[in-house]
């Protein structure tokens, strides 16, 4: 069972308290009605499913109930870091550059 750091509660809690909510940084278009079929397909149906670093949404559903974002390694399952919803993708990851 993974430990997940909730960026709102500011502590590590066991995975049981959380629920995954899919890929992060897919913003709903402001003028969604004007989207072409292709763009809507990309927005709603297509996911990167990367091997390696993935950006995910999680919800601390049995805790503060907040949604937040996480960078995780899909090979090792490890969380690299978590950050609040709405914040941009982190430019530097902890442990990067080694």
């Amino acid at each position: 069972m993974l430990l997940i750091h909730c960026p709102y509660c500011e502590e590590e809690r066991p995975e049981l308290e959380f629920r995954n909510a899919g890929e992060a940084h897919i913003a709903r278009p402001a003028n969604i009605v004007a989207e072409s079929d292709e763009d809507f397909e990309k927005f709603f149906f297509i996911r990167a499913n990367t091997k390696g670093l993935v950006y995910e949404r999680w919800r601390h559903v049995h805790g503060c109930a907040r949604f937040f974002n996480a960078v995780r390694d899909s090979v090792s399952d490890k969380f690299i870091m978590t950050y609040k919803a709405g914040e941009p993708k982190p430019k530097k990851l902890p442990g990067a550059g080694k």
Binding site: A21, A27, R28, R57, R59, V61, A65, R66, F67, A85, G86
Partner: peptide, 11 residues
Amino acid sequence: MNHMEDYLQTE
């Protein structure tokens, strides 16, 4: 409730 919270918090 989850669906509503999701949109309210993130979109």
